[in-house]
């Protein structure tokens, strides 16, 4: 689960770097070029299979783990645990679940369109015209606001996930662990702010 999660951590950075090309003032030229490269490169095609594999393992394992953990305490306490721990570390399955719902919508909007499973939305030229699909969606203010909230939740999920993955893999060192925790926070801020900038740009522009 931790290895699959770390792969997803790397993937998000790649995804973010391509998304940010939307902001480049060239009518979407560089974004279209990058997304065409991602759709056609054979190595990326292989990585796509690895990505879906990791996503599947991460989700299924997360659900199985949570059910097993819930079963480990059949009789609950009547007073809720007051131990001082990081808030979001306790609710990973819920933030994960919300991200999953977002992913389903995200796939309906983009990936399934590309595969031809969903009709091409109005305003987009063809199945690969992601640039216009993005502009269409972010021109709806409510969509942009929900997107930003979800990216914040993703950041909170990642903040715990990033450093927990290292602990699970046995990497805990008095010199490096504090640095990993700082890196986790920086990474999650970059991801959630980075992805949020794009709808924010469209919200302010229109």
């Amino acid at each position: 689960m931790s290895l699959a999660g770390l792969f997803l951590v790397v993937f998000l950075l790649v995804h973010l770097s391509i998304n940010l090309l939307i902001l480049k003032d060239d009518g979407g030229k560089s974004f279209i070029a990058a997304s065409e490269f991602m759709s056609s490169n054979p190595l990326i095609k292989i990585m796509e299979i690895v990505l879906f594999g990791c996503l599947f393992i991460h989700m299924i394992y997360g659900v199985i783990l949570t059910i097993k953990n819930w079963m480990s305490r059949p009789v609950k306490y009547s007073v809720v645990n007051k131990t001082d721990t990081s808030f979001f570390s306790r609710y990973m399955i819920y933030t994960g679940g919300i991200i999953f719902i977002f992913l389903a919508i995200h796939f309906m909007n983009f990936y399934f369109v590309k595969l031809g499973l969903v009709d091409i939305p109005e305003g987009a030229g063809n199945r690969h015209d992601f640039y216009n699909m993005v502009i269409n969606l972010f021109s709806i203010p409510s969509y942009s606001v929900i997107y930003i909230i979800l990216m914040l939740l993703l950041g909170l999920h990642l903040n715990h996930a990033f450093q927990a993955a290292f602990q699970t893999l046995g990497i805990n060192h008095n010199k490096y662990t504090p640095a990993i925790k700082v890196l986790a926070t920086i990474y999650s801020i970059i991801v959630s702010v980075g992805f949020s900038i794009i709808p924010l740009y469209f919200l302010l522009k229109y």
């Binding site: 953990n69 079963m71 480990s72 131990t83 001082d84 570390s89 805990n172």
Partner: peptide
């Protein structure tokens, strides 16, 4: 039937002997 570790570290906070979670990482390793 014990549960699995999800790294919330409540154990370390409540341990009367303040055993560190670095031991969990050592065991995982």
């Amino acid at each position: 039937g014990f549960g699995n570790c999800t790294n919330t570290y409540a154990c370390e906070v409540e341990c009367p002997k303040q055993i560190s979670v670095s031991n969990i990482a050592r065991m995982n390793r």
